[in-house]
Design a protein around this nucleic acid. Structure first.
Lengths: 159, 159
DNA sequence: TTGGGATAGATAACATGTTATCTAATTATC
DNA sequence: GATAATTAGATAACATGTTATCTATCCCAA
């Protein structure tokens, strides 16, 4: 019960499993396959995947600060810093200092940013719904939950 | 049955789900959590995650060509081109032209490359085994399989 | 109070991701 | 066998990922 002979992803026969079909690669490939569905839409609107993540989250949580945004978007601060500067330059969002803590900055979409969001979100949702329909909403929920379980598990090291 | 109230990942209460807990982010976060376990080991050996993927795959499939390597590692050709030049510079691998097709190049580890692999692989396997043990080997197999099912599903668009 | 640590962001430097384009070699078509 | 289409890699240009470090502010304890 230890040989799994089917390998449709790699085009040559392989005697290994632990490496190429291991969890990290599986997660990478799957994400790749999912994002492939979104990329044409993003490109049409001249937006990168990460920029769209930022816009989305700020739209949901206006006035979020950079640290929380970084966590929510899964984008590290150095990347986010650059992106915020650029997105502010394009007048899609604004950054404001906070009374009481001069280190923090609160981020909000401009009208232009809101418009961009409103323009893009319907098709983005449609693509997501399509994926969900193809894979099955139930299986997808299960998968997302399993991913979350694994994640939590890993965040609590064994010692 | 449509409200899932638990959100331990994002630190504030949220009224949405479709976005922040959607599949793409779930895959990203989970991969992040998994790789966090490997990063200290990789850093110790002065290697990036991607470089390690390349070394691993070439070790398994000596004489692989760049295109197949790109597919196997999930690294696009432009990135791979740069990396191969650098890794060749560090004398971890060599590239050889092929009789019969002067466009292709076959890639093989040098002795130094093999040594690096041999030096790193035991702990890498140990880390993987540890993750597997924490999450449960059975659940992990199931998860990997579900990821693969989703991937195949997505590669065959509905029309 | 003040001085030492902690926190929020920014920046530097380098590696990789992504799209578009380019070159050279190969294959298919006629 | 000449030409068009295809394929293997490389390069350019820009965006993001990653680690380390820096600055400014804030907080807290002596």
């Amino acid at each position: 019960m230890n040989d799994k002979p089917s390998y449709s992803d790699t085009n040559e026969l392989s005697q290994f499993r632990r490496f190429e079909e291991a969890l990290p690669i599986a997660l990478l490939r799957t994400r790749e396959a999912v994002m492939a569905r979104f990329r044409p839409h993003l490109a049409q609107h001249g937006m990168t995947e990460q920029q769209w993540r930022v816009i989305r989250v700020v739209q949901q949580r206006p006035g979020i600060d950079a640290t929380a945004l970084s966590e929510a978007c899964c984008i590290l601060m150095p990347s986010l810093s650059r992106m915020l500067k650029a997105l502010e330059g394009e007048k899609l969002l604004i950054r404001e200092k906070v009374e009481g803590d001069m280190r923090r900055q609160l981020i909000t979409l401009t009208q232009r940013g809101e418009a961009k969001f409103a323009e893009m979100v319907p098709q983005a949702e449609a693509i997501y719904a399509q994926i969900e329909a193809e894979f099955g909403a139930t299986d997808m929920d299960k998968l997302i939950e399993q991913l979350q379980v694994l994640r939590r598990n890993l965040k609590t090291p064994s010692e």
